[in-house]
Design a protein around this nucleic acid. Structure first.
Lengths: 335, 335
DNA sequence: AACAATAATGGAATCGTTATCAGATAGGAG
DNA sequence: CTCCTATCTGATAACGATTCCATTATTGTT
């Protein structure tokens, strides 16, 4: 590892001038610039980002805090954000909090002590301990995907209420009056918003959803197995004609379990998911889902970080897109 | 952002002593320790990692360079590595090179200029430009998942030849003599190793694989569609009784396409995938696959970084695990 | 009570970079 | 030939933490 001093010595010139050449700040005689560039090449010199970051109070670094990274949607966020960071010569430091407020706080502190230039965070839930710390660094923080109720942070997320409403309307229009739902964890506001919208869509048509058929899942396969298991043991199950799982993974899990129980999708029962992942169209039957524009959300997030809005907070909600597939294609007869 | 100087001033004491309290290096009178801790709490002080990293020539940072991050396997690596990093109070900086040697090099340089303590990389391919740079930092680098032919780096990967051989043997034992394969990109050695093992398994039984039925995919769904399309147009297709796709995503894609062509799995044709992802058991029929112990691989990688082996290079190969599912359960009659 | 040994603390240099300021060189005008 | 302005360059002081080294305070020993 050679330093700027090494370069200066080799070029027979001062550090200041070398720095000027690198940053293109201030005038440098062409001939000395040449010498410097040659020395840089010879020594395979790269400026130390810790030193410059310390001086400039900017680590040329974006922090990304997610619940986990194995989930498809988060992988997509990582991908898009990482690509944009690369484009702007920014590093990307990542941490996952597994819904633990303590881990979330540790990550936050660690990131800040690295002089990050921006923080993108999909927070734990309303139980997050970051409240006031987030407030102190408003321009630098964007909440992505998940919201914190009543927070004054900038945020980029899907209109989850609308997503629920769209799905409710869709199922209603297909003739379904007795529906079930496998939700995400209720401590996360997006899960609450989704089911609220779903309920409202039916309510607007005068239909009440039976709360016995609302199951709180955790976005993982196993919880969808449990949900179907529980539903199937309820006497009212035979009248249920549609199930909405709040992500595609749980929808596919539900499909598997329903098939095992001898229920055929979409003939006996309709099924829908959410996210618009490959899973939805790769499964047989293909599953009706709600597409989330993950890439656009990530792009918007980065653009907000790079051009901080004057009047915080900015709350951006993306529109969900309903994708109809085979799993809800059958029209149910309305008695 | 308060600095150690602020803490020192507030505590009415020198920076040196504050530093000693924080790092627990050297003796400090209990009463002064108290004062310091109180000041730290009052100021909400966090040591600046750029400053300490600059001094210590250690950024408390691990670099992770992957081809992409949306793929399931890479998501798993990120997750496990990130968790271990957290455990040891190390940051994790991530970049994806999209199989571009130039991006890969840029990431490498950027990471190094942040004084990373270790680098985990799944390199571009043999076309990687990192050759000598990797050699210069042997103890610090682990190749994960992908190898560079003839490199002298430590590496942790699956025994991909064995995986291919296992799958070949399995299909042979089920009576298959005319098989097809959808491979990964051939510039990546693991794809070559897999198909080589697969070929050899059949060869050892005196069966030659028809090269018309080896298709170079790219691990994405679309390429599996194309593969099946191409296979189906070949006159010999009707005699093919089994297809191995070198990952689960392509296997599920192949399943979808085969179903469309009126071929039933596993009755008309057997199908297998690789990776052991949720996809394999969630699809209908469930798909025979080869399990990769992603978490263990990631754990081993981190443990190698933390306890660098004396005699480099260390090449660790994990054993693949065959998981038999419905998609290959039918025994084909041997004429 | 005097001294040695140890505990506790502060000062200063260092890591590599950049920005400010002052000094040097060159070129042109008078 | 002098003076003045550009153009160019170098020394220095930060950024925040750590680690020697030196100094002072506190014990214990005889």
């Amino acid at each position: 590892m050679s330093s700027i001093t090494d370069v200066a010595k080799l070029a027979g010139i001062s550090k200041s001038t070398v720095s000027r050449v690198i940053a293109n700040s201030g005038p440098v005689k062409p001939s000395t610039r040449e010498k410097v560039l040659k020395a840089i090449k010879m020594l395979d010199y790269n400026p130390n980002l810790l030193a410059s970051g310390l001086r400039a109070k900017s680590g040329r670094l974006i922090g990304l805090i997610l619940p986990e990274s194995v989930h498809f949607d988060f992988g997509f966020f990582i991908q898009t954000i990482s690509d944009i960071c690369m484009q702007y010569n920014l590093g990307l430091i990542i941490g996952t909090h597994h819904n633990s407020p303590e881990l979330e706080s540790r990550l936050f502190d660690d990131f800040y002590s690295r002089n990050i230039d921006g923080l993108i965070i999909s927070p734990v839930s309303d139980a997050s301990l970051l409240g006031k710390r987030l407030k102190d660094s408003l321009g630098k923080v964007i909440l992505l995907d998940r919201e914190i109720t009543n927070s004054s942070c900038n945020s980029v997320s899907l209109d989850n209420y609308k997503a629920g409403y769209m799905m409710g309307s869709h199922l209603y229009s297909k003739g379904h009056r007795n529906v079930a739902c496998i939700t995400g964890p209720q401590h996360i506001s997006l899960s609450r918003d989704r089911i609220a919208g779903f309920r409202q869509a039916f309510l607007d048509k005068g239909v009440m959803i039976d709360e016995n058929f609302v199951y709180e899942g955790n976005f993982d396969v196993d919880s969808s197995f449990e949900a179907i298991q529980k539903f199937s043991q309820h006497p009212g199950f035979s009248s249920i004609t549609a199930i909405w799982a709040q992500n595609d993974v749980m929808a596919v899990g539900a499909l598997k379990k329903l098939t095992k129980l001898g229920k055929s999708v979409p003939d006996d029962i309709a099924l829908a998911g959410m996210d618009g992942t490959d899973l939805s169209y790769l499964s047989t039957p293909s599953i009706t889902t709600i597409l989330q524009p993950f890439s656009q959300m990530a792009e918007k997030t980065m653009s907000l970080l790079r051009n901080p809005p004057a009047d915080v907070p900015v709350k951006i909600k993306f529109d969900p897109i309903l994708v109809e597939n085979e799993s809800t294609e059958k029209e149910f007869i309305i008695k």
